[in-house]
């Protein structure tokens, strides 16, 4: 079903005992996870389990109260978001956060910001090097846009695209960063079954083509089970299970957490 990922011994991302509380509410409670290079790693759990908060901690938006994070062996715990992005972690959002006023092309080019070198002065003066770089950036961005079939809409406002296209554009914008780790927060939300299948294929293709590692938060179980190499389950901020899909599915604690929501049983 999945292409065999190239797993290596050292994890690309590891969190050790990460804890974060909002006031009295402990959103993430002592979570330790290691994500292996090349895998598609699912992060599931009921609403409010702390999945998005964990993403926010991994990308530097929130500094955890306790615990440490490592990306490719280097600590990232207190780095600002832009530094973490530079190191190679890209992400998308549960509620789409494209720059609606910018064009499709500009959105993707913004994703390449850290991968280009021209600065204010060279850009303003239109120095040849800056212009050549601008052209190259534009070309690379257009290739990515072509992948999701939006070439003829490259110059329209991103906010005017239909929902499904916005979701794909957001993934492509994250890819423009040339990440080695991609965090996808509910990428299939609001899609129909056919779109979900297409998205699942797209994610796998992208992983193989760019040799990415992907962590995906998703509620739609068939998609998660079919796509992920391993799955971690969170409930009330804690990690309650981790393993290959089939094993996680039989885990009593997981079934308990999902009791009442038939989602998990309905495959």
């Amino acid at each position: 079903m999945t292409d065999a990922p190239i797993l290596s011994a050292s994890p690309i991302l590891s969190a050790s005992s990460v804890t974060h509380a909002f006031g009295g509410l402990i959103a993430v409670d002592g979570v330790s996870i290691s994500v292996q290079r090349g895998e598609i790693f699912g992060l599931i759990g009921p609403n409010g389990a702390g999945k998005t908060t964990l993403f926010n901690i991994m990308t530097g938006l929130i500094a955890p109260n306790r615990g440490k994070l490592f990306f490719e062996g280097r600590e990232t715990t207190r780095l600002p978001p832009y530094r973490i992005a530079e190191r190679g972690i890209g992400r998308t959002f549960q509620n789409i956060r494209l720059f609606g006023e910018l064009s499709v092309l500009e959105n993707v080019m913004t994703g390449r910001h850290t991968r280009t070198h021209s600065n204010v002065l060279s850009g303003v003066l239109g120095l040849p090097a800056a212009r050549a770089e601008e052209r190259a950036t534009r070309q690379q961005a257009m290739q990515l846009i072509d992948r999701i079939g939006l070439t003829d809409r490259a110059h329209v406002r991103a906010g005017s695209l239909p929902y499904g296209d916005q979701r794909r554009l957001e993934i492509v914008r994250a890819l423009a960063l040339e990440p080695r780790l991609l965090l996808l927060d509910e990428p299939a939300a609001g899609m129909n079954t056919r779109e979900k299948q297409a998205l699942s294929d797209f994610i796998r293709q992208v992983r193989n083509q760019y040799h990415l590692t992907i962590v995906i938060i998703e509620h739609h179980m068939p998609l998660v089970m079919g796509l992920c190499d391993r799955i971690a389950v969170m409930n009330f901020g804690q990690l309650i299970a981790i393993g290959v899909p089939a094993a996680v599915q039989r885990n009593p604690a997981v079934i308990e957490a999902y009791l009442g929501s038939r989602k998990f049983v309905d495959r």
Partner: peptide, 18 residues
């Protein structure tokens, strides 16, 4: 373009490495 991106959504801009 980065300035316009920041004006629209500073958080997302930071997550894109700006």
């Amino acid at each position: 373009t980065a300035l316009r991106a920041v004006a629209e959504d500073e958080t997302t801009a930071r997550l894109l490495g700006i």
